[in-house]
């Protein structure tokens, strides 16, 4: 009786937990990075927040398979696309640099490879890559900050084809990104 009750209670408590875990599977992907809370910048003058994961990526992939097969192929293998950008004042610069430093400290021991660290007087950028055992690109992280301008935290995770990503991202290149007008409500490009 006690054993049966134990098994039943165990199942009752673990099955929903397992289910919940399944919805958070992207967090276990080696290419996923948690930048921590960026809530302090949510009221910045301009913000862009894109966070698209698993199921929606698959839906977009399916929806674009005829119109743009290259994009569909790229998206089909991705797990997460995350972009956080926000405008900053001079006083925010140090805080953002601290966030970048903290994320870097977290990434360094986790087999993330620092591909680029670029520093200019008022700009700082770090690009990290995560490769799998078979040299497949599993994750990309871009952290950038420009004083009195903007900070950006970008993470792309999944089975990434670098050449396809390069090709597609240049296709979607918006030359006037610096002077983009972002819709305050939807955070979309006007």
């Amino acid at each position: 009786m006690k054993k049966l009750m134990f098994v039943a209670i165990l199942l009752l408590t673990t099955v929903p937990f397992v289910q919940a875990q399944k919805n958070e599977d992207y967090k276990k992907h080696p290419g996923y990075v948690d930048f921590g809370s960026l809530d302090q910048f949510k009221d910045a003058e301009e913000t862009v927040e894109v966070f698209i994961k698993g199921p929606l990526l698959k839906f977009v992939s399916r929806a674009t398979s005829h119109e743009d097969p290259d994009l569909a192929r790229l998206l089909d293998n991705l797990v997460v696309i995350k972009v956080n950008t926000f405008s900053i004042d001079a006083k925010d610069y140090k805080e953002v640099r601290d966030i970048i430093n903290n994320v870097s400290k977290k990434l360094d021991p986790q087999k993330w490879e620092l591909m680029v660290r670029a520093k200019e007087s008022d700009e700082y950028t770090e690009i990290y890559t995560q490769f799998g055992n078979d040299d497949k690109l599993l994750g990309l992280v871009v952290m950038a900050v420009e004083e009195n301008d903007e900070a950006a935290f970008i993470n792309i995770a999944g089975d990434i084809d670098p050449s396809q990503l390069g090709k597609l991202s240049s296709k979607f290149d918006i030359p006037e990104l610096d002077s983009l007008e972002i819709d305050a409500k939807t955070h979309h490009v006007k």
């Binding site: 929606l56 950028t125 871009v142 970008i154 990503l165």
Partner: peptide, 29 residues
Amino acid sequence: PEEIEQAKSDIELALAYFHHYAQKTETII
């Protein structure tokens, strides 16, 4: 379909940002 279309434009924007920063870094280097 509207949500998918919006997600598609979000993805395009995300890729554009990625390209922008990658290129910017390349210029600095």
